[in-house]
Computed example of a mutant assay.
Amino acid sequence: MTPGPKTPPAREAASQRIANDLRAEILSGVRRPGERIRQEIIAEEFGASRLPVREALRILESDGLVTLIANTGAWVSTMDLAECTETYLIRERLDPLLLMLAVPNYSDADVDRLESMAAEVATTGSVEGFLELDRRFHLESYRAAGADSLYAMVERLWNTTQHYRRAYTHLIGWDGLRINHLEHTLMLDSFRKRDAEEAERLMHSHLRRTRLELARHPEIFEATIGAAEEHPATPQGPARG
């Protein structure tokens, strides 16, 4: 089979740059679930044609961050409570599995680095700081698994639930985060002992607690849906494929 034409390097670089900036805006909450992304405005902001913008949006769609609707447009992906619950149930299986595979491969230096990262999570002074550092800590804890396909799946699921983790964090406040920090401490103890089964169990409990707390607050999802722009089709459910 003859391969298709390759994307020119300059256009590929522009697409990746646009995707990186939009990804950062979505994950940080600057662009909220349900918000429309207008290609012409993005192209103007980046001084680019619409072609690299379209390619950037396709990258973000594969990341679970953007929903594209043919002949209609692009929106920051959103979820309802049922979809978020389903995603967390999947994460409760995949994240612990990935961690279980990683723990036996840790070096002492790996554990030292993770302990330092957890200390940063515990001492940050803002919700956004917590979200960024907590995400970095957990994703870094999975890298030693050496399971690239599983890691990519897990990272995508983290992307799709980011906004709702933000809402959850605001909801529980700093007092609630003390439990989060305690769980990190217990995980680090299992890392130091290379106890993969205990790490797996703790990660499952860590995620389950968030899922159950979100289920107690459906108003989080109602507010998201209410804030979305009106458009011909509701771009929900990035986790549904």
Rank of each mutant, 00 (worst) to 15 (best):
T161N: 02
G29Q: 06
F221K: 00
H163S: 07
R113I: 03
H184I: 10
S116V: 02
E140H: 10
L186A: 14
M1C: 09
F137C: 05
A13S: 11
F46D: 11
E40F: 12
N71M: 11
T7I: 13
L171F: 10
A109Y: 08
H231W: 03
R38F: 05
A147G: 00
N159I: 08
L182Q: 14
G237R: 07
E44W: 02
I18M: 04
G47R: 11
E115M: 10
R54G: 01
R136D: 13
Q162E: 14
D195A: 06
S28C: 10
L27I: 14
L133M: 14
I26A: 01
T234G: 04
A118N: 00
C84G: 00
I179D: 09
A56I: 12
E12L: 07
G64W: 00
R143W: 04
A228W: 05
D21M: 03
N105A: 13
A147F: 09
G237C: 09
V53E: 09
W75P: 00
H138V: 03
I90D: 12
R50N: 13
V76I: 07
T7N: 04
I172Y: 05
L27P: 02
H138Q: 01
D21G: 01
L133G: 02
P96R: 13
P8S: 01
M187Q: 15
T160I: 15
R50M: 10
M117I: 06
L177Q: 13
E40K: 13
S49L: 03
S28H: 06
V30H: 11
G125N: 15
T169C: 06
L150D: 06
V53F: 09
S77H: 05
L99Y: 08
T123V: 11
T160D: 05
E25F: 00
S190M: 12
T185E: 15
A152H: 06
L171R: 08
C84W: 02
P235W: 10
D134W: 12
I41G: 02
V53G: 01
I41F: 03
R93G: 02
I18H: 01
I59Y: 08
Q39T: 15
T124N: 11
G173P: 10
E197C: 00
A48H: 08
D108S: 12
I42W: 01
E12W: 03
M100F: 11
G173M: 07
R11A: 02
H170F: 10
D110S: 13
D108P: 06
R113W: 10
V53R: 05
A233C: 01
K193T: 13
W174N: 08
E35T: 07
L177C: 09
L98W: 02
R178F: 07
V127S: 09
E115R: 14
R208G: 03
A233W: 03
T210C: 01
R23C: 04
T78V: 02
L214A: 02
F221S: 07
H181D: 14
I41Y: 01
K193H: 10
L139H: 06
T78G: 03
A102E: 04
R192T: 12
A215F: 03
I69T: 12
H184C: 07
Q162M: 14
R93Q: 13
D148M: 04
Q39W: 07
